[in-house]
C-alpha cells in the first residue's frame, strides 16, 4: 500500500507549488487515473479553505470535507445545507444532534472567541461528526485574510485541525489531532523586489485522558491541543520563512557582514 499511486502522488504534490493546490490536484488527477485512487488522493491532500454564505442568517461559514454532502455544505449556525438542496437529495445527509450538536455549537462560540484574540480578521468554524459508538470526530477551521495593508499584495492564514476522539482498550479517551496550516504572503515591490512565500506544514499530536462523558471537558482538552499545535506550526513557519531562507541565501552567497571566503581563508 505504501507504494501505491496515491502515496507517490502525495510525494509529488509536496514538490509542487503550495500556492496553487487546486491546480496541483487537477494535474495529479491526469496521471492518477483510477477513480478510487483519485478520490483517495483528493481526500488526503489538504486544500485551502473557502467560504460560503448561510443564506438564512447571512453569515459566511467555511467549507471542508466534514460538512460536505455532494455540492452542499452544512452551516454550523443553522445546521442546514447550502446552497439549499432539494429535500429528496438530503434523506441520507448528516445532521448532528443531541450532545454532538451541543458540542458543535459551543465549539463554534469558543473558536470564534479564540481566533479573535489571535487573528486580525478571522472567520472560524467547527464541525462535529460521528465516528464510532464511543467516539466522535471534529474539525476546527480558521481563515485569516489580511485586508489591504501597506505593501502586502496577499496575506492568508488557513488552519485545519482535525480531531478523532476514541475510547481506547483501557477505557480512557484518546485524542488524535492532525493540524495543517497554509500560509501565503506576497509583498509587492520595495527595495527587495517581489516576495512570495507560500507553504503548508503539518503537525500530528495525540493525548490520552481519563474517560469523560462531559462535552465541556472534551472541548477544553481539544482546545488546548489545538492552541499548542497552532503555536508550534506558527513558530515553525516563521523560523523557516525567515531563519531557513536566510540560512540558504547566506550560505550560498556569503555577504560581507558574515565575511567572504577571502576573509575566512586569511
Amino acid at each position: 500500500m505504501e507504494d501505491s499511486a496515491v502515496v507517490n502522488a502525495l510525494n509529488l504534490n509536496r514538490k509542487l507549488p503550495p500556492s496553487n493546490i487546486p491546480k496541483n490536484i487537477l494535474a495529479l488527477s491526469e496521471i492518477v487515473e483510477n477513480e478510487d485512487e483519485q478520490d483517495e488522493m483528493i481526500q488526503r491532500i489538504d486544500q485551502p479553505l473557502e467560504r460560503i454564505q448561510d443564506s438564512s442568517n447571512g453569515a459566511d461559514f467555511l467549507k471542508c470535507e466534514y460538512n460536505r454532502d455532494g455540492d452542499c455544505w452544512r452551516s454550523p449556525y443553522t445546521n442546514e445545507y447550502f446552497p439549499q438542496p432539494h429535500e429528496e437529495d438530503m434523506s441520507e445527509a448528516f445532521y448532528p444532534s443531541g450532545l454532538l450538536r451541543d458540542m458543535e455549537e459551543q465549539a463554534n462560540d469558543m473558536i470564534k472567541e479564540y481566533s479573535n484574540l489571535y487573528f486580525t480578521n478571522p472567520l472560524s468554524n467547527a464541525y462535529f461528526f460521528e465516528t464510532t459508538e464511543e467516539g466522535f470526530g471534529a474539525c476546527y477551521l480558521i481563515l485569516n485574510e489580511l485586508s489591504s495593508e501597506k505593501g502586502v499584495k496577499d496575506g492568508q492564514w488557513h488552519s485545519l485541525h482535525s480531531f478523532t476522539v476514541e475510547e481506547n482498550v483501557t477505557g480512557k479517551h484518546t485524542y488524535t489531532l492532525v493540524s495543517t496550516v497554509f500560509l501565503k504572503l506576497e509583498l509587492a515591490g520595495g527595495l527587495y523586489g517581489e516576495l512570495k512565500i507560500n507553504g503548508t506544514s503539518t503537525k500530528r499530536t495525540e493525548q490520552t485522558h481519563p474517560k469523560s462523558s462531559k462535552g465541556s471537558e472534551h472541548l477544553v482538552r481539544m482546545g488546548k491541543m489545538l492552541e499548542k499545535n497552532e503555536k508550534f506550526l506558527r513558530d515553525e513557519l516563521d523560523s523557516v520563512y525567515v531563519g531557513k531562507s536566510k540560512q540558504i541565501i547566506n550560505t550560498g552567497r556569503m555577504h560581507d557582514l558574515y565575511g567572504t571566503n577571502k576573509t575566512i581563508l586569511s
Binding site: M110, L117, Y118, N144, L185, Y192, R234, D238, S245
Partner: peptide, 29 residues
C-alpha cells in the same frame, strides 16, 4: 534582505497570527 526578514517576523507574521493573544497569555479554554 536583512531588513525584510525583520519586517516579515515583526509585522507580517504577527498580522497573520499573533504569537500570543494581546492578553499576553494563552486562551483560557
Amino acid at each position: 534582505l536583512e531588513e525584510m526578514y525583520e519586517e516579515i517576523s515583526d509585522n507580517h507574521m504577527k498580522n497573520l497570527r499573533r504569537k500570543l493573544p494581546f492578553t499576553g497569555k494563552n486562551f483560557e479554554w
